[in-house]
């Protein structure tokens, strides 16, 4: 559906997108992640034919985004960052106007707008003025606009930004439903959302792809028995020293509980299960061991560990 090859975009002095290449297959829901200024919005603007790249090639459904941009625009539903809308128009008026602009024939326009009003839960506010709606409802209007011409591909730039948890849930469900019929590329900073909705995650940093896989595989990538949490009753200093001396352990962080137990977080490299060593150590020293578990890595940890230029978490903790 999308094929991007060696895409580069330079603004005066800034390289926003740097030799980016990726593909998105039909039917995928791809979460597009990256820190602020990574070039997500820029890439999306290029894909939606708002502006061309400095160099490189991008095609959507086989059409070049620059030379055949009208064909591309016909097939894309794009929701820009910050969801710009004409605030003085009424909801149904706006959607009707957008449908006409996107070439929905006048005979089908009514059914199309009714359908997207229904889908996005806008039925009750269709007569309201957009500028008087709450942010969540405006967000839905933006989403409805991107859907109104029934495009093959949806490009949504931070569709759930600024919504309350209930609305995030609803929009997330909506996106999931849409994913059954459309290909979706969405950017967001809400990582649990990506874990729940996306079939694939693509993380970019400084204009380059740094990771691209399913959410599960990505969390496995930095997991593999890495960090372990143990709750032990015993002398804090001794525990810290003894656990730190275990083979493969990079760092130990001890927090004292208020019931005589201490909570130790043991950092070790992936694929090096230190749980056994900890158990043996506890048995040898006659410590009471209350909990011993692997810390499950979330997508957030993956995101942080691969987009941050500084040290991994262990070193940071050490400085504190």
């Amino acid at each position: 559906m999308i094929a991007v090859e060696n895409l580069t975009k330079r603004y005066a002095g800034v390289t926003a997108v740097d030799n980016l290449s990726f593909t998105v297959k039909r039917g995928e829901i791809v979460g597009f992640l990256g820190p602020n200024g990574a070039g997500k919005s820029t890439t999306m603007r290029i894909l939606s034919a708002f502006m061309p790249a400095t160099s490189g090639k991008a095609t959507v459904a086989g059409y070049d985004v620059f030379t055949q941009s009208e064909e591309v625009r016909r097939r894309i539903g794009y929701m820009p960052e910050n969801n710009p809308l004409y605030l003085e128009m009424r909801v149904s008026e706006y959607l009707n106007y957008r449908a006409a602009l996107k070439g929905v024939s006048s005979s089908k326009r009514k059914t199309r707008t009714d359908e997207v009003l229904e889908r996005c839960g806008l039925k009750d506010v269709s007569r309201r003025i957009v500028g008087q709606l709450s942010k969540g409802y405006r967000q839905r209007v933006g989403l409805a606009d991107s859907l109104v011409h029934d495009p093959d591909l949806l490009i949504l730039d931070e569709p759930t930004i600024g919504l309350d948890p209930n609305q995030i849930r609803q929009v997330r469900q909506l996106i999931k439903d849409l994913g059954k019929r459309h290909t979706i590329l969405l950017s967001t900073h809400i990582l649990p959302e990506v874990e729940m909705t996306c079939s694939r995650v693509m993380i970019i940093n400084k204009g380059k792809v740094v990771a691209s896989d399913t959410p599960e595989n990505l969390t496995k990538l930095i997991e593999g028995g890495g960090t372990v949490r143990a709750e032990i009753r015993g002398d804090r200093a001794v525990i810290e020293r003894e656990l730190g001396a275990l083979p493969g352990v990079k760092n130990v962080v001890i927090e004292a509980g208020n019931d005589g137990f201490v909570c130790a977080t043991v950092y070790a490299p992936p694929r090096n299960d230190v749980r056994v060593h900890i158990y043996e150590k506890a048995a040898a020293n006659k410590w009471t061991l209350r909990e011993l578990s692997r810390v499950r890595q979330t997508l957030e940890d993956v995101f942080v560990s691969i987009t941050r230029v500084e040290a991994p978490p262990s070193k940071q903790e050490e400085e504190k």
Binding site: F50, R73, Y78, P80, P84, L85, L87, R98, K102
Partner: peptide
């Protein structure tokens, strides 16, 4: 200013 230039120009119009 509103950013609607983006929705306008990404619609299939020249």
């Amino acid at each position: 200013r509103l950013g609607t230039i983006e929705t306008l120009m990404t619609a299939p119009v020249s």
